[in-house]
Nucleic acid binder design. Structure first.
Lengths: 319, 319
DNA sequence: CTGAAAGCGCTTACAG
DNA sequence: CTGAAAGCGCTTACAG
């Protein structure tokens, strides 16, 4: 920077003003000389020095509850894109469903002086808002936040999604519609389950199934139901992971989807379009959620309603 | 840091030595006082200042050819874990199959002073080694690197993987085995295809299929083959994405896998275990590849042979 | 509109 | 074994 200033016959202050377009004006002629000198010397500002001095790094930390899960992966991708468009770099971390690992990542990201934190939390994660606030770093949860968390949470209209799925299956003539939830369904899945429950009729408990949000567990579950001759005629799964496991277990058990088992999933990740058969889903508005979260983290006053998850009709429902 | 030094009755130099366990020794008693003072004050070293001074940030840049693709996502996850174990933070970027975006990401990561660059490149990406070398930053390619790239490339033993798949299908009695490659198959897929070709018999061209590495394209391809009554009896797909698209298109066309179409995929991502039917695969050693790459980026002299992709027998082959 | 200079929070030669 | 001090490359109040 000193070299550039010297070559342009000015001071480092002025070089800074032209490189950053401010905070003070620079005469057009001086500006030209600085730009020319910078180009000739191949000068690139050192972000680290800038960060130390200005206390802003241009880096945002993104923490995922479970990065192998394509739903989170897809959400992460949209957050990355939104951040990239705002010229922010993203530091990524996978909490692997561990509150301890999540806290550790927050600590490390804070030490790295991130400008903001975007967290896709999981059931049971603790609220890290106090840590972030102590460091003066804004934070926002996406899809799922801790119970009683103080930071804002961006999620889709999960109630509406579940209602759409129930109605569509009713339209196919199904009166009894089962629901596959998580083992401990707090947060967004809990809201999906509650919305289904309100429409499920007399004895929802008899129709409520539970398993972890993994293909393997759903696969095992449906095989066991097949063995017991207890496969429901219509099923809504809380997540795509579960729906995909159901499909694979049903195939292995000789249960035909959708003829013997009509299925709708409530995530609608890209995977759901190319299963056998293709899944009918309510598609979570991941892009809108990511945009909303990024907007919010830079402008706490920003407000937008929860985006809806449109019904995408494919084959697994019987259409 | 000055506060800690004052409280411990010593200098900032000594505080630095104890926080970093070096480079100089500190008397045990002094060390204790510093640690106590740091704990009482809740002192956390500022990584940015440390980076400015020591010219090492503890951050590694990871660039992915296409982050929505689960194969790359899975590879990324292993790289992240390996880096996390070495106490490195990871800056992530998605090139989206664009050489231009890849170059831009490298520029930004270099400006952010990353200590190293790990790149999962795509067909046709240009070599960014000169950029990295100019900045004195080590770089390693994983899975796929540019043609004639100067940096090291870590990949699996792709030739062996394709051979295993051919042999297994032969064992099922298939003499004519088709191969689904990419549209322009350089790099690892090219090596898989070449290994198959060497074993394919008289007229490999008649058995060579091509489409992009996406579910959608493979889905369309198999439907068209079904319409033309030209579905092969046995098929090896270069990637899981393609295999999954084949499965979904075959289902839609009423072609039974494995009875009418035996299938083996050469990626073996976690997804492949829960398709309908479950895919027989050669499982790419992603974890070993990630470890190897991370090892290599910190120690250019490190050497290990290409890891093999074991055959994982499930249902799609006919077993 | 511009310059000289302080200071961000560290690390590390230098001197003792 | 320890301390005083320079300096990493910037930004920005201060003074003109």
């Amino acid at each position: 920077m000193a070299d550039v200033a010297r070559r342009a016959g000015t001071s480092t202050a002025v070089v800074s003003y032209v490189m950053n377009d401010g905070p003070r004006a620079v005469a057009a002629a001086t500006r030209e000389r600085v730009l020319a000198a910078a180009a000739e010397l191949g000068y690139r500002p050192n972000r680290i020095a800038r960060a130390l001095r200005s206390r802003t790094t241009g880096v945002v930390g993104l923490i995922l509850a479970d990065s192998p899960n394509p739903y989170f992966g897809d959400l992460a991708r949209h957050v990355e894109r939104a951040l990239d468009e705002r010229d922010r770099l993203v530091l990524i971390g996978n909490a692997g469903y561990s509150a301890e690992r999540q806290r550790r990542l927050v600590d490390r990201f804070l030490a790295a002086q991130v400008d903001a934190l975007v967290i896709v939390s999981a059931d049971g994660g603790e609220d890290v808002t106090p840590q972030a606030e102590a460091a003066g770093v804004p934070i926002v949860y996406v899809h799922h936040g801790p119970d009683g968390g103080r930071a804002p949470l961006v999620e889709a209209d999960n109630q509406h999604a579940a209602q759409e799925a129930v109605e569509h299956l009713r339209g196919h003539g199904h009166a009894r519609i089962a629901f596959l939830s998580g083992t401990h369904d707090g947060g967004p899945v809990g809201r999906r389950r509650a919305a289904w429950q309100a429409l499920a009729g007399d004895d929802p408990d008899a129709l409520l199934l539970r398993c972890a949000y993994t293909r393997a567990d759903a696969d095992v579950l449906i095989r066991r139901l097949a063995d017991d001759d207890a496969v429901p005629r219509a099923l809504i799964t809380a997540t795509d992971e579960q729906a995909i496991g159901i499909l694979s277990g049903a195939w292995a058990s000789g249960i035909a989807v959708p003829d013997e088992l009509a299925l709708i999933s409530l995530d609608g990740t890209p995977e759901s379009a190319h299963t056998a058969p293709a899944l009918t889903v309510t598609r979570q508005p991941l892009r809108a959620m990511a945009e909303h979260a990024v907007e919010l983290v830079f402008d706490p006053a920003f407000h937008a309603p929860a985006a809806r998850a449109p019904l995408v009709v494919r084959r697994s429902c019987g259409c």
